[in-house]
Design a protein around this nucleic acid. Structure first.
Lengths: 210, 210
DNA sequence: GACTGTGAAGCCATTCACAGCT
DNA sequence: AGCTGTGAATGGCTTCACAGTC
């Protein structure tokens, strides 16, 4: 195993393989081949093997991969073999939904603090979490040792919130506001644009009536 | 302008450019250069020009692009110069949030029907929309001439729902269930995996403590 | 015989660099 | 002079094909 730069596309697929393996495991399946994984997630068999090869040799030639083991390896690689506390800023519809989203919990994420600067939202409850003013963020981050923040505020507030997150010591940000954000090099940041995939669909539908 | 195959990455960026141009337009900015767009969305200037070049020549050499015109072109290319009705299956947390998500409306999408097979959810209201049983989907699709469906149900129900959507005449599906779905070649389908980007963050955070 | 792991080849997207226009 | 549009060069991801192993 050599450690070269891993393509982000590989990480993305690894996350998908990982969930697929969990399904197989739940169904009691013990062994799986790269071809079966490929079919299950919509990729090529060589792609699956190449992706895994970035991190080691997990299979047995002539046999395949042990489902439970490979599942654990993928979780380990992705860094979700332990749980991650999150803070979330923006208690609007989207923020509310993200807090309640079970898929995060299933993958080891849990929102431990929700913040907003809207006086009407502060004090409201989301499940068992109370919405706090932004001033409380620093304390919650310290108490739970939070590293990742989620931005779910309108575009015009996103940069300011990001700055605050960095100042409060967060190391990674997931930004749901459809706007580019500036943060120091050392901060990991990814944008989630909710409508991009819909627009890929409309683009492709449009091509068809030519 | 030659019509070669457009990379999906280009469409993705086009969607982002488009939103950035809307912001500029709202701020009253008339002209913009590829470099300014690049800076605003976090890309390279050559990338911006190359992406646009797939669809025509929209700029003026020595000057740049007219913001309003380019904005309209991008919307047209993406197919969202007119509005798209959507149906959504799954009235859980995620479905609820997607229905209420303003970002979709701002880009010309509107959910015209919400469906679920859970007797406890049927009849509930999401804004002014009532949750209907799946049997009503066909009629709503026909009445509003819907082409795109959103799946927001648990993984184990996703394939079945997709089949029903295809049977009812939908041409494109956006799948929020973290599972691969089989549909005929002619159907456009994209998966949205909510936790992938979080896992990219945890992967990258993990690499740092080596 | 079956399936993994991997160097090499092929392919596609991004970046460069400059001609062309205003 | 400044910025676009684009062929050429680069770089990187994916696919192929086969040697290696069970």
């Amino acid at each position: 195993m050599k450690t070269l730069k891993v393509p982000e596309a590989t990480i993305t697929r690894l996350s998908v393989y990982s969930r697929f393996l969990e399904q197989l495991d739940r169904r009691g399946i013990v062994t799986v081949s790269s071809g079966e994984i490929a079919k299950g997630v919509g990729a090529g068999p060589a792609q699956v093997r190449k992706d895994l090869a970035y991190f080691g040799e997990f299979g047995t030639r002539g046999v395949g991969y042990n489902v439970k083991d490979l599942m654990r390896y993928t979780l380990k690689i992705l860094g979700i073999d332990e749980s991650w506390p999150l803070v979330l800023v923006g208690a609007g519809n989207l923020g509310f939904a993200l807090c309640n989203y079970k898929g995060f919990n299933e993958r080891g994420f849990s929102v431990v603090g929700v913040f907003d600067n809207d006086i009407n939202k502060i004090g409201k409850k989301i499940l068992d979490l109370e919405v706090y003013p932004l001033e409380n963020m620093r304390e919650v981050i310290a108490r739970h040792n939070v590293k990742i923040g989620i931005i779910a505020v309108p575009s015009d507030a996103a940069q300011e919130v990001a700055g605050l997150m960095v100042k409060n010591g967060l190391q990674a940000i997931l930004n749901y506001a459809p706007v580019a954000i500036n943060v120091p090099e050392s901060i990991e940041i990814r944008n989630v644009d909710m409508s991009v995939k819909l627009e890929i669909l409309t683009f492709n539908l449009g091509k068809k009536d030519l």
